[in-house]
């Protein structure tokens, strides 16, 4: 199995693409943001809340550990992802715009939104939190460009069964974000198909 090289520049480029995409979502009307494709699926705001919950776990860990890492003595040359971690990351990575494996969300990551309370203010709050958290992720990637990242492993959000070096954690989070961007595209496509004859 080929080893994937993780670089901070690649992470930053993909994160910027996601941030731009979510920025564009703010132009959608409330019905688009709050209408799920069917009764069992999430709407767009719920997808964003899920992403916010998922990042919350890592935000704490990054704040706790990154400042303590020693500075990198030379230029960041990238990080080779390990096999088990690659398997976990690949379970999230969409392939050619398709989510490969659909999976049940763990209870602690479910977005518990009251659909009757979804108004403009709530939508604004969700977007604001999304940008705060995911700009924090970008700052973490930028900080780690100049840090020695091979000295620290952190447990993933599902526990110590998966331990990540920081670049592996960034790759996991970005693949997870990309996976849910695909889900948002699917929601929007289904809304379009309901409107178009």
């Amino acid at each position: 199995m080929a080893q994937l090289l993780l670089t901070p520049e690649n992470h930053i480029q993909r994160l910027n693409a996601i941030l731009n995409k979510v920025d564009q979502l703010q132009n959608l009307g409330l019905p688009s943001l709050t209408t799920p494709p069917n009764s069992k699926s999430w709407n767009i705001l719920e997808v964003l809340v899920h992403l916010n919950i998922a990042y919350g776990h890592y935000q704490q860990k990054f704040n706790q550990h990154i400042p303590k890492l020693p500075d990198n003595k030379s230029e960041n040359e990238g990080f080779r992802i390990r096999r088990w971690q690659k398997l976990v990351v690949d379970s999230q990575r969409p392939k050619e715009g398709v989510r490969k494996w659909k999976m049940k969300t763990l209870k602690k990551f479910e977005p518990l939104l009251d659909h009757n309370q979804l108004n403009h203010e709530k939508a604004e709050e969700i977007f604001k939190t999304f940008f705060e958290l995911h700009n924090h992720l970008k700052e973490a990637v930028l900080l780690c460009r100049k840090k020695e990242v091979s000295q620290l492993k952190i447990p993933s959000a599902i526990g110590p069964i998966v331990l990540f070096y920081l670049p592996e954690a960034f790759e996991f989070l970005i693949c997870h974000l990309e996976r849910h961007m695909v889900q948002i595209d699917e929601i929007l496509q289904q809304q379009d198909s309901l409107v178009s004859p």
Binding site: I12, L15, N16
Partner: peptide
């Protein structure tokens, strides 16, 4: 040194 002045995607 090694600061990103401009990022792809921005």
């Amino acid at each position: 040194q090694y600061d990103l002045i401009t990022e792809a995607g921005k």
